[in-house]
Simulated assay, not measured.
Amino acid sequence: MKKILVTGSNGQLGSEIKKLTEYYSQFDFVFADRSDFSLDDGKAIVTFLNKVNPDFCINCGAYTAVDRAESEPELADCINHIAVSIIAKWTAENNCRLIHISTDYVFDGNSSLPLLEDAENIPVNVYGETKLLGEKASIENNTQSIIIRTSWVYSEFGNNFVKTILRLMSERDVINVVNDQIGSPTYAADLAEVVLKIIDTENWVPGIYHYSNEAEISWFDFAVAIKELTNSDCDVRGIATSEYPTLAKRPAYSLLNKNKIRNIYKIEIPNYKQSLIKCLNKLIDTSR
Rank of each mutant, 00 (worst) to 15 (best):
V6G: 01
T7L: 04
N10I: 04
N10A: 09
G11R: 07
E16T: 13
I17L: 00
E22G: 02
Y24D: 14
A44Q: 10
I45P: 05
T47C: 05
N50T: 09
K51Q: 15
V52S: 09
N53Q: 12
C57I: 15
N59P: 06
A62R: 02
Y63V: 03
D77N: 14
C78R: 10
S85E: 15
K89V: 04
C96P: 02
R97I: 03
L98V: 10
I99G: 05
H100K: 08
S102N: 12
Y105S: 05
N110M: 03
S111K: 04
A119Y: 11
N121G: 01
Y127G: 07
Y127N: 06
G128Y: 05
T130E: 08
G134N: 12
A137P: 03
I146Q: 06
I148K: 02
N159T: 15
I165G: 10
L168Q: 13
V174Q: 14
D180F: 07
Q181V: 15
G183R: 12
G183Y: 05
G183N: 12
P185F: 10
A188N: 06
A192P: 08
A192R: 10
T201N: 09
E202G: 03
G207Y: 09
E214L: 15
A215T: 08
W219F: 15
D221Q: 06
F222M: 07
F222A: 04
A223I: 00
A223C: 03
L229I: 00
S232E: 01
S232T: 07
S232Q: 01
C234T: 13
I239R: 14
A248K: 11
A252W: 01
I261M: 05
K266I: 02
P270F: 00
K273I: 06
L276M: 13
L276R: 10
I277T: 14
I277P: 06
L280K: 11
N281F: 11
